[in-house]
């Protein structure tokens, strides 16, 4: 009988589309990775560039933000630096746990403009792991980065932003 077969087929579409809704999550991440959209930066990579490449100088600005209810103090040594593309640089960031409780924090990076994200390589970054600080403790950690000389000429400034999140609850067991 065609009817049962039809109902079965339609139910299959329904469950398939429910699954597709969830499949959009990895698909979206893959899409952003490929295109470098959304200012998403990839994990640690070490690249060295040939000195003879056409390097130029540009500005990098550092933005530090606290997510809501995050009481830590979080600052970079200087808000901006002028750099040469293709060379290694270092910037210090200082974290202070201003509360009376031990806490765990996670910094999430974002590069703006998004088009520039795939030319921004961090060789060392605190954002690759969580920071655990006891009450009142303070720590300074450097970010090492290098900017690909291939970066489009019309980008004269890159902004590296970090948002600091309180992840104490998620990592309390550590």
């Amino acid at each position: 009988m065609g009817q049962t077969k039809n109902v079965f087929r339609l139910l299959l579409i329904t469950f398939g589309m429910f699954g597709f809704g969830f499949a959009l999550v990895p698909l979206y991440d893959i899409f952003c990775d490929i295109t470098g959209l959304n200012g998403k930066v990839t994990g640690p990579t070490y690249t060295s560039y040939n000195e003879e490449l056409d390097t130029r100088s540009m500005k990098v600005t550092f933005v530090t933000l606290n997510n809501k209810n995050m009481p830590w103090s979080f600052k970079s040594d200087s808000p901006q630096m002028t750099i040469e593309t293709g060379k290694d640089y270092l910037m210090n960031f200082t974290f202070t746990n201003t509360t009376a409780e031990p806490m765990v924090a996670q910094a999430i990076p974002s590069v703006s403009p998004g088009r520039g994200a795939k030319y921004f390589h961090k060789t060392e970054c605190f954002c690759f792991e969580q920071q655990y600080l006891a009450a009142g403790e303070s720590i300074t950690i450097p970010v090492k980065f290098i900017i690909d000389p291939e970066i489009p000429r019309d980008i004269s400034t890159l902004a590296l932003g970090y948002t600091l999140f309180d992840v104490t609850e998620q990592f309390a067991y550590k």
């Binding site: 699954g19 809704g21 996670q106």
Partner: peptide, 25 residues
Amino acid sequence: MPVLAGAVTMMLMDIHFGTSFFSAA
């Protein structure tokens, strides 16, 4: 409609079960 059901299910998991579909943290 199943995609909408998926979206609200992800919200539910973000709110109650500690997932981070929509949370940058």
